[in-house]
């Protein structure tokens, strides 16, 4: 049940999706991997939208060079754990939600546990090896992975629904080399908000998700492209999921 305070807080969005939609958001648990450039807008917008439980994981401390884009963290937070800073800000911006901050490196051995019973995973990471770990967790748990990536003025977003869409490995089978990437804060702002928009639509069960669609943003040209992406039946990560589904379909 929504409290009177919640009904007031969410009044303007409940005009869009009613009590039922708001209850769905309240009941949801979203895992956000990363409290950096993408994790900041994703978590802030999911928090104010009233996602009932947000778990946000990061292992780093706030550095001055993060502050051009990681809007969860302020100048006073330099040197603090990003998780502590994130938890404080998210609880302040919406005291009606539950925030779990996990100060830990996401690894193959702990990822499934960290994600727990979350209804979806937001990829707000800065590297592909960890993304692949979460891709495996999403496939195993059959929960969506909301992918985002940025560099400079460019960004990409797609929504991965295991069994229905290509997985991250189908789309990007090989990781690019690691680099200190250039970035201006507006890019993760735009991409993170698109990821949060996908999460909200998914939880509400309405709208058209970026399923099988890789959305590519070019901020310099102020232009967006969409590339249709397909499942790879031989994918090392999700190939068996696809195969099982196909076999089941054939039996009918």
């Amino acid at each position: 049940m929504l409290s009177e305070r919640e009904c007031e807080r969410y009044k303007r969005q409940m005009m869009l999706f009613g009590d039922e939609g708001q209850e769905r958001l309240k009941k949801a648990h979203i895992f956000i991997a990363g409290a950096g450039g993408l994790g900041s807008p994703v978590s802030l917008y999911l928090a104010v939208a009233g996602i009932g439980t947000i778990t946000i994981a990061d292992m780093d401390e706030v550095d001055r060079s993060n502050l051009n884009r990681q809007i969860l963290h302020f100048d006073r937070d330099i040197g603090r754990k990003k998780t502590a800073s994130a938890e404080e800000k998210l609880k302040e911006i919406n005291p009606d939600i539950t925030v779990n901050a996990v100060d830990m490196k996401i690894e193959e051995t702990n990822a499934a546990n960290l994600v727990g019973k979350a209804d979806g995973i937001v990829d707000a990471l800065d590297n592909y090896p960890t993304r692949y770990i979460l891709n495996d967790v999403a496939i195993a748990k059959k929960i969506p992975l909301f992918h985002g990536g940025i560099r400079g003025f460019y960004g990409q977003v797609t929504t991965i629904i295991p069994g229905k869409t290509p997985c991250l490995k189908c789309i990007f089978p090989k990781a690019p080399p690691k680099e200190v990437f250039p970035v201006v804060g507006v890019t993760p702002g735009i991409i993170g908000i698109l990821q949060a928009n996908e999460v909200i639509k998914y939880l509400l069960g309405s709208g058209l998700l970026l399923m099988g669609r890789l959305f590519i943003w070019d901020g310099m040209q102020a232009h967006a492209d969409e590339i249709c992406v397909e499942r790879n039946p031989a994918c090392v990560a999700c190939g068996s999921v696809v195969k099982k589904k196909t076999t089941a379909g054939k039996r009918k």
């Binding site: 990363g34 450039g37 800065d126 940025i150 990007f172 090989k174 590519i216």
Partner: peptide, 9 residues
Amino acid sequence: AVFPPVAGG
């Protein structure tokens, strides 16, 4: 179309 995976976050 020719593109790299965009990795930052």
